[in-house]
Amino acid sequence: MEKFTNHTGRVAPLRNSDVDTDQIIPASYLKRVTRTGFEDGLFAAWRKAVPDFVLNRPEYEGATILVAGRDFGTGSSREHAVWALRDYGFRVVISPRFGDIFRGNSLTAGLLTVVADADVVERLFARAEADPASEVTVDLGKRTIEAGDIHAAFELDDYTRWRLMEGLDDIGLTLRHAEDITGFEVQRPSWRPVTTSR
């Protein structure tokens, strides 16, 4: 995973709440067996059907920070939603609240999801709408959002922050504790089911 320390970029304001992962990437794009190249699926239905959808507007081309309404990434567990955002060029998503599985996927795959108060999100919307060229800095080290006169702190647990800043592989970290796993397996109840015999 690529290290994440801080990021400065322009904002795409997506004034929708309850953006489910079916909207982020429709199911027809989930048939692929690759892990990259999902940018064409990002918000595919809205990009196709809604001419003034934020990603269709030239002034937001090249935005790397997506700011969205409450409950972003609800629904399906598809990590393809994170891959599509990442492959399209987004490094950060800011919302008042995220779907749990989407959030977990993003922080595992190196897309920083930032939970910000609704009023901070509203001010970020207004700023990006008034001046699409304006930039926002998200600093993971300091856990802050800086944009003009907007100064906001955000929460992220120390462990996740450390893992993102070091770009560490979760599986590698867990395998350091392989002996603990083996120890646990020895004392598991023997009557628990196995899938290989019935």
């Binding site: 892990r35 567990s77 598809r78 990590e79 393809h80 994170v82 599985i101 977990g104 996927n105 595992t108 795959a109 979760d170 599986i171 970290l173 867990t174 395998l175 392989a178 796993i181 397996e185």
Partner: peptide, 17 residues
């Protein structure tokens, strides 16, 4: 439910952080 990175994690370690 879990994402694909976690699917890989469980396949490799039978655990999840």
């Amino acid at each position: 439910g879990i994402g694909t990175s976690q699917v890989e994690h469980v396949l490799a370690t039978q655990t999840l952080p």
